[in-house]
Simulated assay, not measured.
Amino acid sequence: MSNTPHHLAEEFPEHLVKMRHLRETDGHFHRIATAYEDINHRIHRAETDLEPCDDVRMAGMRKERLALKDEIHGMLMRAEPLAEEAEV
């Protein structure tokens, strides 16, 4: 069982500027990014036995995290490129 945190900045390092911009300008993106961070934190705590859970709950949390990550990725791909991204 992996206990590596899956922070959005590590998952999408090439989109840091765009993520920051979307968090500030798109309420839906902000909500799903916050939900991703919350479920990711709960998974990490379970994996490190700080808050253990059963396998069924863990699988459900991982599916939820993956669905959120897919939605975030889709929004990042559809978002307009920012001038700052060209400089990165």
Rank of each mutant, 00 (worst) to 15 (best):
M1N: 11
T4V: 15
P5C: 06
P5E: 04
H6R: 10
H6E: 08
H6W: 04
H7A: 08
E11F: 04
L16G: 03
V17P: 00
V17I: 04
V17R: 13
K18L: 13
K18Q: 07
R20P: 03
L22C: 03
L22T: 02
L22A: 04
R23Q: 12
E24F: 00
T25M: 12
T25P: 01
G27R: 12
F29T: 03
H30M: 13
R31V: 05
R31Y: 04
R31L: 08
I32F: 05
I32C: 04
A33C: 04
A33K: 07
D38P: 00
I39H: 01
N40G: 05
N40W: 01
R42C: 08
R42W: 06
I43F: 05
I43S: 03
I43R: 03
R45Y: 00
A46T: 01
T48A: 14
L50Q: 13
E51R: 15
E51K: 10
P52S: 03
C53Q: 06
C53F: 07
C53I: 12
D54K: 09
D55Y: 02
R57V: 01
R57S: 12
R57N: 09
M58T: 11
A59D: 08
A59K: 12
M61N: 09
R62M: 14
R62D: 07
R62I: 09
R65G: 00
R65A: 09
L66D: 13
L68Q: 05
L68G: 03
L68E: 05
K69E: 15
E71F: 01
I72L: 13
I72T: 10
G74R: 15
M75L: 14
L76F: 05
R78N: 06
R78T: 07
A79Y: 07
A79N: 05
A79F: 04
P81A: 10
P81E: 11
P81L: 13
L82D: 00
E84V: 02
E84A: 13
E85K: 13
E85F: 03
A86V: 09
A86L: 11
A86T: 11
E87C: 02
V88H: 15
V88L: 14
